[in-house]
């Protein structure tokens, strides 16, 4: 079964590295890291992921702006985006992701099990 491609966009390199390590250890995912927020759209266009994990508060660009660029692209607009962010609390969302205003959010710090459940829910749709 081909691995699903996941793009992780977050300015925190150690976090993207951990995400890649954890997700790839499952054997189900191929993960690409992007640590420059403003490059997120270009990397997505080049990588053509099945799903994007996107941070919101980045130094050069807001995660929402990156999501808008991606959703404006005909080839990428169907790619599910999950915002993985520190600015909300676990209690405000479900452990496995909540839909707030049409977007899916996961609160940091996130457990691997919850992250994988969220990914599988999104990719399973």
């Amino acid at each position: 079964m081909p691995k699903k491609k996941i793009l992780v966009v977050d300015d925190e390199a150690s976090l993207t590295r951990m995400l890649r390590r954890n997700l790839e250890a499952t054997g189900k995912y191929e993960v690409k890291e992007e640590n420059v927020g403003s490059q997120g759209y270009a990397t997505a266009k080049q990588f053509q992921p099945d799903m994007i994990l996107l941070d919101i508060m980045m130094p050069d660009i807001d995660g929402g702006a990156v999501a808008a660029q991606i959703q404006d692209d005909e080839q990428l607009k169907q790619v599910p985006i999950v915002f993985l962010t520190a600015i909300i609390q676990k209690e405000e969302v479900d452990d496995t992701g909540s839909n707030i205003g049409g977007s899916t959010f996961l609160a940091k710090p996130v457990k691997l099990g919850d992250l994988i459940t969220c990914i599988e829910n999104k990719l399973g749709r």
Binding site: R21, A86, K108, P109, L112, G113
Partner: peptide
Amino acid sequence: AGVAHEVKNPLAVIQLGIDYLSQT
């Protein structure tokens, strides 16, 4: 608000590290 954001990111790294070690 600033502290929360700055602390949660490293916590997220540690949490994923913990999950990785507990699996491997």
